[in-house]
């Protein structure tokens, strides 16, 4: 039964590992491999993106469409949306009539189905589904901050070993708890990435270069949940990076009122590295469930480690440590 719920364990048994931490590290690598896009998926995504880019620039000369978000940083989970932004030379394409023009064009060209124009939102977008691949696409207009963030994340990924693995596993965890949707108070992708980056760069063993994160992914995952599920003071602190060095730091909520609408409240505040007055996680109002989920993941992982550590070989065979916190639903990969 476990092989269907935890497909990343199939043919990857690590139950002979002496150290439970090593077993967990190896299982994390298997899970990351399993949820990483296949070459067909990458080809499909690129085809969809390139077609849209080309057609939009034909329809509107003087504009360029770009990808941002998880698709631009290769931190996407299977089936994740594609985020695109149209940037024009004139900078005035974010308006109602333009949104409707483009949506009719995409429909007429058979490039979009289930088209929705959300013109009155804070960030106006067109939402649609690619008819061939069924991938969901959001197009926004004239906003460069997503592109800047993607560039920053790509830089972090190349300078921070272990970041990609930790982010993907935490994202998959949040998704399986339905806590990854910011529209219902969950934690967004960028917020998740900043928390993981902050954690890795402030860890005593990593900031002193005493160990290689890739060898210690298992213990780092548990310690990530330990920090944000048990110990971090959401009441008093803001998660922040030094703007010059990008070193992790915490700011006090009551000394940075611009970021914190209500003082001393139980809310998660993550400072935007590109705009010190912007709170990346202002939509993540469901902190109670988020903290509970992180704390629960810590408990479950630790309990599983203790249980498997004393279990006889036959009871360890085919077991998953991550299976208690991550259920994988989706087509076989």
């Amino acid at each position: 039964p476990s092989s269907t719920l935890y497909p990343w364990v199939r043919n990857h048994d690590h139950c002979k590992q002496k150290e439970i931490a090593d077993w967990l590290t190896l299982e994390m690598k298997d899970l990351v491999n399993y949820i990483s896009p296949s070459s067909e998926e990458i080809i499909t995504r690129n085809r969809v993106i390139n077609t849209l880019k080309k057609q939009i620039s034909i329809f509107w000369p003087g504009t360029e469409a770009h990808v941002f978000g998880s698709c631009a940083t290769d931190l996407y989970l299977p089936g994740s949306d594609i985020d695109m932004v149209v940037i024009s030379n004139t900078g005035d394409y974010e308006n109602r009539s333009r949104l409707y023009q483009l949506s009719s064009f995409l429909r007429a060209k058979n490039l979009a189905k289930n088209v929705e124009v959300i013109a009155s939102a804070k960030v106006p977008i067109i939402k649609f589904v690619d008819p061939d691949s069924n991938l969901h696409i959001d197009i926004s207009f004239e906003r460069k901050n997503g592109l800047d963030a993607a560039r920053r994340i790509r830089r972090w990924l190349s300078s921070t070993p272990g970041l990609r693995e930790l982010v993907l596993v935490v994202k998959q965890f949040l998704r399986s708890r339905k806590l990854n949707n910011v529209h219902v108070g969950g934690l967004g992708g960028y917020a998740t990435i900043i928390m993981c980056y902050h954690f890795l760069h402030s860890h005593p063993k990593l900031s002193t270069n005493s160990m290689d994160p890739s060898d210690n992914l298992g213990v780092l995952l548990i310690e990530f949940f330990e920090l944000y599920g048990r110990n971090f003071s959401y009441d008093n602190l803001i998660i922040s990076l030094n703007p010059e060095t990008e070193e992790p730091r915490y700011l006090l909520k009551d000394k940075n009122s611009a970021l914190n609408t209500a003082r001393n409240t139980f809310s998660i505040v993550i400072q935007d590295p590109a705009d010190p007055t912007n709170n990346i996680s202002r939509s993540s109002y469901n902190l109670r469930d988020l903290k509970k989920a992180f704390g629960g993941a810590y408990q479950l992982l630790v309990a599983k480690c203790y249980q498997l550590n004393v279990a006889p070989y036959k009871d360890r065979l085919g077991q998953s440590i991550l299976g208690d916190i991550i259920k994988f639903k989706g087509k076989e990969r």
Binding site: E19, H201, S210, L301, C305
Partner: peptide, 23 residues
Amino acid sequence: IWRSYLTKRSANNDNESCVLPVI
């Protein structure tokens, strides 16, 4: 049982890391 780190060899001997931590 789970909080066991696989540290770099150099971090265990006298030439261990002198990189100042971010605290």
